[in-house]
Structures are given as structure tokens and as C-alpha cells.
Design a binder for these strands. Structure first.
Lengths: 259, 259
DNA sequence: GGTTATTTGTACGTATGTATC
DNA sequence: TGATACATACGTACAAATAAC
């Protein structure tokens, strides 16, 4: 037989790896959700019933449920009238996943700082334009609060910076834009911390925010976009000059100490 | 005591819900990965050892591992020299996760078709500009192949459509832009299928691609961006006119038959 | 090439939390 | 207020797979 080189005998060429039971169970339940046979709010039978329907043990079903819970498709409530339910999907979980994923990628050079900064600019500049055009009065109030709440000097200062940008994305009226941009913002933040002591930079940031807010209030889309562009150029130059955030010291002792 | 209305007695106001052991274990291991204490390729101790390090049972550790496996942070290999390993992260996996997540959101009205189309335009128009400015010769060859490979009439026609857009994003030189845009593209595609029989539309699409490619070849960034904008306006108008993709028929019989 | 040690996969029993009566 | 029923959470024992000897 000379067929080993290409992966095995012809009769076995098309087979696929054995997949663990918990994966197969997760796949089937996922398909039920995606196809619409199970809809948000639906309750699954108890773990024991699901287990006997699939012909596996409860532990296997539980692992499948964990997989789908991690993907935010299910959640579990313990107790008498608890159970496992199909999630009413919420973008925030996807946003968090994206942020951790991007964080890891940026740590492995699969994504560079330049790409993060460029992409942020690509997204936030049009977001500012949209916000000026579409913001509601409530969103305007929230933006003004974010700008004015900035305390003169404290390490919550960053919180207000982020809040301004988040509210602006919200005001753009495009939830997808917010979902994508927030993680990019978050990853950049995790790599660079502007110390509260840098009063000059913080003063410039807050003046920029004030200016953008004014243009958004006035409904000047092009003006808001241009002001945002200048704001980000300023920030980027600062980030580039700062160098990376200092790394945490190496861990001492074993990661998984035996007990 | 009159403190029940605001969530409980003052001394317990700051407490948080008990979190299941498997979640706490997953959180700690996730933190080790994100902080860099565990790096891609690292092997965790055996499930039994991890269990005793945390003081829980193996089942609990396994559920935690399933959570992190679903987030593509870990994978398991069974057998004597198997084990659980930290994943070497690859952007394509994150891209796939984003696409399924967006697909589900768009099915539940958490993301509208308009938001998908708007965001795509926001991303692909600058991507076309960047591609014209930065494309390498190899990328130009790939783009030309994608345009010219289009067969006159077949249901692989869509594949070439997608390939052109993917290659263009690649040519923009920003991997993050590609990572974010590809899922948006994919979700739109999953909601709308242009039948190969619509020769007029397909002809227009392919003529647009030809035009964009010419401008990218010429290094005309503004021209390429404008051509892409017109291309997407055309596509969007068509999508809007098509209405949603037909749903599969309802399932008959019980979803979880008892055995 | 079989034996064996080590690892993940699976089954099942017990503990614990929670709404209802 | 306590008893109870039923759900998930957790723990233990065994089976199966895999690579080295």
C-alpha cells in the first residue's frame, strides 16, 4: 500500500476526527438556537432530561452548557424553579470577547499599535460626524455630563475620558460601530496609561472634548469629525512618544501551587 | 429596619452574588493568560493537579476549561502525553467568533441591517483608499485574479465577490480593519443571497470591481474610495429592495425526545 | 509490538440552593 | 415559618485514548 503519504488509505480519506460527546451536544443545541427552534427566553429541559435525550451523562451535558454559556447563548439558574435558558442576546458580551481577543493579539504582534490607532481613527471620526447629525437631547445631556464631570486631578480622570468617547459612540446611533470601537479603545488604553500628573496633556484632552461637544451640539457634522480627527492625532502622537506601559513584574513561585 | 428597599442592610450593601466555582476557576486561569503568566503553547498541569491547586473537583475544573476553550484560549488533547494547552492565538478564530456573534445579534434586532450596511461602508471606503496607497505588487496580482476569475454564471460567483473584498482589505495593510470588516461582510451575506440568475446585478458588481481595481493599480486613493462608495451604495440599494432571506420551515415533533 | 503510565473523557451519586406550599 | 420538591453545583469512580518504553 503506497497511500500513507496522503493521509491514509483511500477508504478512510474522508473521515473526520472523533469529536468528544460534549462538543457534539453543544453543536446540536447551538444549531437549535441558531436555526430558531429554541428562541430567547426558552427553557431547556433539566440537565438530566437533556442527558437522557442525548444518551449521555449529566456531566457531559453540563460541559456542553458551559460552552454555550461562554458564547452567551445560554445561562443557568439554580434552585427549584431555575433551569437553563436561552439568552436574550446582549451585545456587551460580544464586545468583551472582542476586547480580550484583541488584547491577546496585540500582545503577540498579530496586531500592531499603529493598526489599533489607525482603526480607531477610522471609526471614531465618522462616529463624531454621525453623532452631530443624529444625537438625541438625552445623549447631549449625557455627553455634557461626561465633559463637565472631569475632576481637576484624580486617577478617575481616565474614566471620564473613556466615558466621553463611549457616549459619543452611543450618540452616533450605530450600535455596531460602538460594539467594534469600544474594544479597540479598551486595548489601546490597556497598553498606555496617561498619568494624572501630566496636567498639560489632560488639559488638552479636556479642551478637545469641550470643542467636539460644542460642534455636536451645533449639529456641525464636518466640524465635529475634523475636531475628533485633530483630537486623535494629538493623542496618537502622545501615545507614540510614551512607549509601552511598563510590564508587571514576573510572578514569583509556582502558578499552580499543589496543596 | 427600613433598609430593605435599597437592596439589603447597609453592612451587606457591597457584597456580590456568589459565583459558581467553575466560573471563579475560569476567571483566574483567564487572568493568568491575559496577564501573560501563561503564554501561548504553555501546558497546564493535569486536570487533577489543577483541581487540587484550586481545592475543587476535576469536574469543576473541566467546566472551567470548557469555558476557556469556547473562548479559544485553551485546547485539550487526550491521551498519555496530552493535556490542556494555551492556544496560539490566530486572528482568524477571533474573526469567526465575531461573525457568529454578529449573526446572532442581527437575528434578534440588536443590530439592524442599516447598521451593518452603514458600518461596512464606513470601513471599506477608507480601506479602498489605503489599498490604493499601500498595496504591494503581490496584492495587486491577487486582486486582479479575484476580478478576472469571475465565471460568467455559476453559484460560485459569490465566492469571487467575497474574495475581491477580502483581498482589498488585505491590501489595505491593516489587519485589524480586515478582522472587523470581514465578519460584517459575512453577516450581510448570510442575510441576503443574490441569485446567480440576476445577471444585471452581477454584471454591475463585476464592472464596479474592475473600476476599483484600476484605481487601486493607479494608486489613486481618493478615486478608489469614491468608487468603493458608489459600489456599496449600489449594493445597499439592491439589498434593501430584496427583503430578507426566506426562513426554514418549523420543526415537527419534540426538540428533546425522551428515551 | 505489546505493556504501561498518564492524561482526558464519561457516568453516576451526593450536596446545595431556591421557589412553593 | 418550616417542609418539600426540583433544579443546578459539585465530587468520585471508572473507561478510553495515546505515547513512551
Amino acid at each position: 500500500m503506497a497511500d500513507r503519504a496522503d493521509g491514509g488509505p483511500a477508504s478512510l480519506r474522508a473521515v473526520h476526527r472523533i469529536r468528544p460527546a460534549y462538543e457534539q451536544v453543544a453543536d446540536q443545541i447551538r444549531a437549535l438556537i441558531v436555526e430558531g427552534d429554541l428562541t430567547p427566553g426558552d427553557r431547556l429541559p433539566s440537565e438530566g432530561e437533556v442527558a437522557s435525550a442525548f444518551g449521555v451523562s449529566r456531566g457531559t451535558v453540563r460541559e456542553a452548557i458551559r460552552i454555550l454559556t461562554a458564547a452567551n447563548l445560554l445561562y443557568s439558574v439554580r434552585g427549584a424553579h431555575g433551569g437553563t435558558f436561552v439568552t436574550r442576546t446582549d451585545p456587551s458580551v460580544l464586545r468583551d470577547h472582542l476586547e480580550t481577543g484583541l488584547g491577546i493579539l496585540s500582545g503577540t504582534d498579530a496586531i500592531s499599535l499603529d493598526e489599533l490607532l489607525d482603526t480607531r481613527m477610522l471609526l471614531e471620526v465618522p462616529a463624531a460626524r454621525l453623532a452631530a447629525q443624529r444625537r438625541t437631547d438625552e445623549q447631549l445631556v449625557a455627553l455634557r455630563e461626561a465633559v463637565e464631570a472631569a475632576p481637576p486631578d484624580a486617577d478617575v480622570r481616565y474614566q471620564h475620558h473613556r466615558r466621553f468617547h463611549t457616549e459619543l459612540l452611543e450618540a452616533s446611533g450605530n450600535r455596531l460601530l460602538q460594539l467594534v470601537t469600544a474594544p479597540v479603545f479598551g486595548v489601546i488604553r490597556s497598553r498606555f496609561v496617561i498619568p494624572p500628573s501630566r496636567r498639560k496633556i489632560w488639559g488638552e484632552i479636556e479642551a478637545d472634548h469641550e470643542e467636539i461637544l460644542g460642534l455636536v451640539e451645533a449639529g456641525d457634522g464636518d466640524g465635529a469629525a475634523e475636531a475628533m480627527r485633530r483630537h486623535l492625532v494629538r493623542l496618537n502622537a502622545f501615545y507614540q512618544s510614551m512607549g509601552p506601559r511598563p510590564q508587571a513584574p514576573a510572578r514569583r513561585g509556582p502558578i499552580f501551587p499543589v496543596r
